[in-house]
């Protein structure tokens, strides 16, 4: 697994539940003081053990932890760069949903070794979408649901999300876009905000 994935889980635990909580996980996994390196590659078994331990320490269901990781990646100030990169997908939440099909290619542009599952978006009727997720890592669909929830908020859209297993074994996220301008949403400019102070104030 790419180090970015392990690092994301590490930062999620640290930023959401505190350094002490992460240190407990790190101690069990026998990790160094810095934890995971973003630019390294780790054995999948390491990621598996990491998730098992996080689930145990947080005492939450596995799928819910992954969904929270997804929400964290979009909404936490420390991961603002990820939120910004996702917002490049389009001006509206619907545009963003359509841009998800490009997500694996975009991710590869940024980090050539990062392999994300293929995503297929089907617009079933006006405002109703089905997002089919390639079965690459079993946990990815749950992270994606968290990302989608947080991105809907980011755009100020009101959307209902549901997930199911399709007959072909792929996960499907059903998205009902009820109101694309439900709330103000967070500001996004193509230009990068200057200085961290402004970012924190947003």
């Amino acid at each position: 697994m790419h180090g970015l994935v392990n690092r994301s889980i590490q930062c999620f635990v640290r930023d959401t539940y505190g350094t002490g909580c992460w240190n407990r996980v790190a101690a069990v996994l026998d990790l160094g003081p810095d934890g995971f390196e973003t630019m390294f590659s780790y054995d999948d078994a390491v990621t598996q053990r990491l998730m098992d331990e996080v689930v145990r320490v947080l005492d939450k269901p596995h799928d819910m932890v992954l969904e929270d990781v997804g929400t964290y990646l979009v909404s936490h100030p420390n991961t603002e760069s990820i939120r910004r990169l996702l917002r490049f997908g389009g001006e509206t939440f619907a545009d963003f949903l359509h841009s998800l099909e490009d997500l694996p290619d975009r991710a590869r542009l940024a980090v050539p070794e990062l392999r994300l599952p293929c995503l297929d978006l089907v617009e079933e009727s006006e405002g109703r979408f089905a997002l089919h997720v390639e079965n690459l890592h079993p946990g990815f669909a749950f992270v994606l649901v968290g990302v989608l929830r947080a991105m809907a908020d980011d755009y100020g859209a009101l959307a209902l999300l549901d997930q199911r297993m399709a007959p072909d074994g792929r996960y499907v996220v059903d998205i009902s876009l009820l109101d694309s301008a439900f709330a103000e949403g967070r500001r996004f400019t193509l230009a990068r905000p200057v200085g961290p102070a402004k970012e924190a104030a947003e």
Binding site: S81, R84, L85, F88, R106, L109, A110, V111, R192
Partner: peptide, 8 residues
């Protein structure tokens, strides 16, 4: 996008 992704 690329500029921002690469700088990250």
């Amino acid at each position: 996008y690329l500029v921002e992704a690469k700088s990250a």
